[in-house]
């Protein structure tokens, strides 16, 4: 493999990793901070993609679709938290799994009623629709590069909010010691609601942003859910930085696995996960005491 091809493959790997990060970041927030296993994360990813398709087809603007889609997902997240999820804090994981599995079925059904079963595609914004010539016969869609940049901005934002703001401080305190935070008079319940809603909004945002380079189809959330869990567990539960590292590792393993070891590429990421967990049972950037 010559250097140029290697460079292109590296770009493929980073770009894929960034996409995975965008989806997994919401999962790691909800999982790590609220302690809730949300199996419906993939379903919200799919819902986001369908919303993007639907709103973009209706308004003709990808940007309106993006803002409106995220807003809808955020509101749905707030409602779900106040009706269902808040009853699950501190309860057995089995209850959470059952509830969020139920949500998958409900969301699938809603998707079917609203949007049907068809496969759709979404056009990227016109000024991002072109591509850049990389080699004599290979070009790279600008939109894929834009996603890389966008994901980095999202990552930085999440990181800043959690480490540098008062809200972030409350979130971290609540994750550390729920009872003590409450005793100190902090309305932790409200913060929880927003964290959950942000998690859902991030899943939907992932679906929306990826819709133009992926296809919008009914089962699209299933594979992404599994990959997201791998990323979260690999990086360390609750760690946004960990999710970024995990996602990049998966991207690299998957891309170069397909190139060098095509016959076993499908299991390579799971082998990677197993090895990392043997080395660091709490994930690469996971907290030791968990």
């Amino acid at each position: 493999m010559d250097l140029v091809t290697f460079g292109v493959q590296l770009l493929n790997a980073v770009q894929y990793g960034m996409v995975l990060f965008l989806v997994a970041s919401g999962l790691t927030l909800v999982f790590g901070i609220l302690g809730v296993i949300n199996l419906a994360h993939g379903a919200f990813y799919m819902l986001g993609a369908y919303l993007a398709y639907w709103i973009a087809a209706y308004t003709g603007s990808f940007w309106i679709a993006m803002v409106a889609g995220v807003a809808i997902a955020f509101v749905v997240g707030l409602v779900l938290e106040s009706v269902f999820i808040r009853r699950l804090y501190g309860r057995d994981h089995l209850v959470q799994v059952l509830l969020s599995f139920g949500l998958i079925l409900v969301i699938d059904e809603v998707r079917e009623i609203l949007f049907g079963k068809d496969v759709h595609s979404v056009a990227p914004p016109a000024w991002l629709a072109g591509s850049i010539q990389l080699t004599d016969n290979l070009s790279y869609p600008v939109y894929r590069l834009a996603i890389c940049g966008f994901c980095m901005i999202v990552a930085a934002l999440i990181f800043l909010v959690i480490t540098r703001t008062k809200i972030g401080m409350i979130v971290r305190a609540g994750a550390e010691n729920r009872e003590m935070t409450r005793v100190l008079g902090i309305r932790f319940d409200v913060v929880n609601r927003y964290v959950f809603a942000v998690g859902i909004a991030l899943a939907a945002l992932g679906g929306i942003v990826i819709a133009p380079i992926s296809t919008v189809f009914p089962g699209m959330g299933d594979g992404m859910l599994i990959l997201s869990f791998v990323v979260v567990v690999l990086g360390g539960i609750g760690s946004v930085a960990g999710a970024a590292v995990g996602a990049l590792l998966i991207g690299l393993t998957d891309t170069f696995g397909k190139v060098f070891f095509p016959s076993v590429s499908s299991i390579l990421i799971y082998v990677l996960m197993a090895m990392v967990l043997l080395w660091r049972p709490n994930g690469i950037l996971g907290r030791r005491e968990v």
Partner: peptide
């Protein structure tokens, strides 16, 4: 003969390979 695991839809790595193979 290139393959991707079913039902994966991430093709970028193999498309790069096609460009190299010509």
């Amino acid at each position: 003969k290139m393959t991707v695991p079913f039902p994966e839809v991430e093709f970028q790595a193999l498309l790069t390979r096609v460009a190299t193979l010509k």
